[in-house]
Every structure is written in C-alpha cells, then in structure tokens.
Amino acid sequence: MAKQALSLPFDGERLRRHRELSGLFQADLARRCSVDQSRISQLENGDGKPSPPLLRALARALNISTADLLRPDEGNAGPETGGE
C-alpha cells in the first residue's frame, strides 16, 4: 500500500520556524523523526507534504500540536489562537 499524502494545508515555513525556535538543525529533527535530512529540507521548502504519521512525528519532536504545522483555514476570519 502506498503512503498516503497529507491533504491538509501543511506549511513548511511553520515547520522551519518551530524547528529553529526549538534550537534544532534539520539533521537533528530528521533523526528524531527517522527520516533523511533532505526530507526535512524538502518539507520546509514547500516541496511536498508529510504523510500523517510523519506529521505526528514532527509535532512530537518539536513538542507542538499537528495544527501548529498547518496553515490557518483561509475561510476562517477569526484570529489565529495557537491551538485549543
């Protein structure tokens, strides 16, 4: 069975920001998520989306929610609250 791509609005820039705020290099995050550093680079640069298991691993490694790695719903006029 092929890996399922994430259909939600993943935001690579948010991934980069949270990684940098955590003081991690791409290689550190990759090691924590059991992927190659090049995959983290691709995600941060908007080249593809993580699978749901990788999205969860990224959030766990960065101690954030998966929602923190997604773009806000463009139809939502309310301010971003940073989680619930």
Rank of each mutant, 00 (worst) to 15 (best):
M1N: 11
M1Y: 09
K3W: 11
K3L: 11
K3H: 12
A5D: 15
L6C: 10
S7N: 14
S7W: 06
S7Q: 15
P9N: 14
F10I: 00
F10Y: 05
G12P: 00
L15M: 12
R16I: 01
R16P: 09
R17C: 08
H18C: 05
H18K: 13
H18E: 14
R19M: 10
E20H: 06
E20D: 11
E20Y: 04
L21S: 11
L21Q: 13
G23E: 05
L24V: 00
F25E: 10
F25C: 09
Q26T: 06
A30Q: 03
A30G: 12
R31Q: 15
R31H: 11
R31K: 14
V35T: 03
D36W: 06
D36C: 07
Q37E: 13
Q37Y: 06
Q37K: 15
Q37M: 11
I40H: 00
I40G: 01
S41M: 09
S41H: 06
Q42P: 03
Q42G: 06
L43W: 00
E44P: 00
E44F: 05
N45Y: 04
G46R: 03
D47P: 00
D47I: 12
D47E: 12
G48V: 07
K49H: 07
K49E: 13
K49F: 08
K49N: 13
P52V: 08
P52L: 14
P52K: 04
P53G: 04
P53W: 04
L55N: 01
R56S: 05
A57S: 15
A57C: 10
A57F: 04
A59P: 00
A61P: 01
N63D: 15
I64E: 03
I64T: 05
I64P: 04
S65K: 08
S65D: 15
T66E: 15
T66R: 07
T66L: 01
A67W: 02
L70T: 03
L70S: 05
D73Y: 07
E74W: 08
G75N: 15
N76E: 14
A77Q: 11
G78Q: 14
P79Q: 08
T81M: 07
G82P: 05
G83F: 04
E84D: 12
E84R: 09
E84I: 09
